[in-house]
């Protein structure tokens, strides 16, 4: 237990302490106290501010698409049909597959020279886009990978929720002659909301701090166009070795995550 607390508490305290210091992992000197200097620097650091925006863009995009698609897939799979078990099993695979390996495959699919996606777009007569090589499309392309990996999670959670719904409201709706859209909108969705909100909360937190696929596929490029806050901090710490500054960024990063999750939790309570 002590070990556990140490494991959790030490990093927080140390990070906060270091965030008031100037220190490079490459320097021979000891950390030097600079007060709020790192925080003030951050506020005028475009890379930091844009990093936050990109992080929000990535998270918002992924979570919204995943929720909608996940719900659709859940409704599809809620029907009885042959091979349902098999499909449920198969769509589990993307979320456990090793992210690094998956990233390599997507990198290949997006490749400008031999990528299948570019070829496919050409075949159906659309102008080919440069996917992760185009600053405008890089984040949507990364979102697509995220959607691929994590929609099944929402779908399966939704499915679990669907199967535990009470039967009575549906029967009374049938008697009232509601069509299936109305049933979905007025009965299924509200009943499912608590389950979905939990799924959403976890997906949001994970997307905010997602690293693996972004780092492997683009390293934050081209330029800085897919550099989310997490990637920027990683580079500051382990490429520029600027530990003091990265600690300050970390403190703010964690505060943002905390704030967003609190907001979501509150929203969830209200719905109940």
């Amino acid at each position: 237990m002590i070990f556990l607390l140490f494991m959790l508490v030490f990093p927080i305290i140390y990070t906060v302490w270091l965030s008031f210091h100037r220190w490079f992992a490459s320097s021979i000197k000891e950390p030097q106290f600079v007060g709020l200097f790192n925080y003030i620097t951050a506020l005028s650091d475009k890379r930091f501010l844009l990093g936050i925006l990109r992080m929000l863009y990535y998270t918002g995009g992924s979570v919204i698409i995943e929720t909608i698609l996940g719900l659709i897939v859940a409704l599809l799979l809620n029907k009885e049909f042959r091979g349902r078990g098999l499909i449920r099993t198969l769509i589990l695979l993307p979320m456990v597959a090793t992210p690094v390996a998956i990233s390599l495959v997507w990198l290949m699919l997006y490749d400008p020279a031999c990528g299948v996606f570019g070829w496919f777009l050409q075949q159906i007569g659309l102008p080919s886009i440069e996917w992760v090589n185009d600053p405008k499309f890089v984040i949507p392309s990364l979102i697509l990978v995220d959607v691929w990996m994590w929609t099944p999670l929402i779908a399966l959670i939704g499915l679990a929720g669907l199967s535990s719904l009470p039967k009575d409201p549906y029967e009374s709706a049938k008697i009232d002659g509601a069509n299936s859209w109305q049933v979905f909108w007025f009965i299924t969705l509200p009943l499912l909301r608590p389950t979905l909100m939990v799924a959403l909360l976890f997906r949001t937190i994970d997307a905010l701090k997602w690293f693996d696929t972004i780092w492997v596929i683009t390293k934050g490029g081209p330029g800085f166009s897919s550099e989310t806050l997490n990637i920027y901090i990683y580079k500051t710490a382990f490429e520029y070795l600027n530990m003091g500054y990265s600690s300050a960024l970390l403190v703010m990063f964690f505060s943002i995550i905390l704030a967003i999750s609190l907001m979501l939790t509150k929203a969830r309570r209200k719905q109940w």
Binding site: L8, F10, P11, I12, Y14, T15, L18, I205, L208, K209, F211, N230, I233, Y234, A237, M243, S246, S247, L250, F253, F254, I257, L258, S261
Partner: peptide
């Protein structure tokens, strides 16, 4: 669970 991995990694 909410802490980003990197905030463990640096310290």
């Amino acid at each position: 669970r909410m802490m980003p991995g990197i905030s463990y990694l640096v310290p």
